[in-house]
Simulated assay, not measured.
Amino acid sequence: MSRGGANPTLRDVALLAGVSTMTVSRVLHGASRVASTTRQRVLAAVAACGYRPNELARSLRCHSGTGLIGLVLPDLSSISCSRLAVGVDAQAA
């Protein structure tokens, strides 16, 4: 990949498939205005390089929530802190 072993990007998929990043995006979002042969090439490139969407990056770009909760506790070995963490996790789920 172009970033020395980092997770593949849309650009990496586009280069492998010989299409633009916009075409890769259209294929991944299910747009109907992509030729079936192009769609197959893009999907093959996605599989070949192991591309997976980065949900955190997407949420930052779209200014939407990340679905993450931060919890800072002074001592996780403390029974009360552990119970608090378990309770927060249960409520979040």
Rank of each mutant, 00 (worst) to 15 (best):
E55A: 15
A85W: 00
D12A: 01
S77E: 11
V27I: 08
R83K: 05
I79F: 08
L76N: 03
S25H: 11
L71R: 05
V88W: 02
L76M: 14
L15G: 00
A45H: 03
E55I: 09
V72H: 10
I69F: 03
G50I: 13
N7T: 05
R11E: 15
S32W: 05
I79Y: 06
A45Y: 05
S25V: 02
A14Q: 08
H63Q: 13
G50A: 13
G30T: 02
R41K: 15
G50C: 13
A45P: 00
S80F: 04
D12E: 06
S25G: 13
A57T: 11
L68S: 10
H63L: 11
A57N: 07
Q91C: 03
V19M: 07
L56P: 00
Q40K: 13
S36Y: 05
T9R: 03
R61V: 14
P8E: 01
A6N: 01
A45Q: 04
G18W: 11
R33L: 09
T66E: 09
G65P: 10
C49S: 05
R26C: 12
S2E: 14
T38Q: 12
L71Y: 09
S82L: 13
L16I: 07
A48F: 03
V13C: 06
G87K: 00
T37S: 15
R83M: 11
L73Q: 04
D75V: 01
S59Q: 10
A85S: 12
S59E: 03
A31D: 15
A31S: 12
C62K: 10
G30V: 07
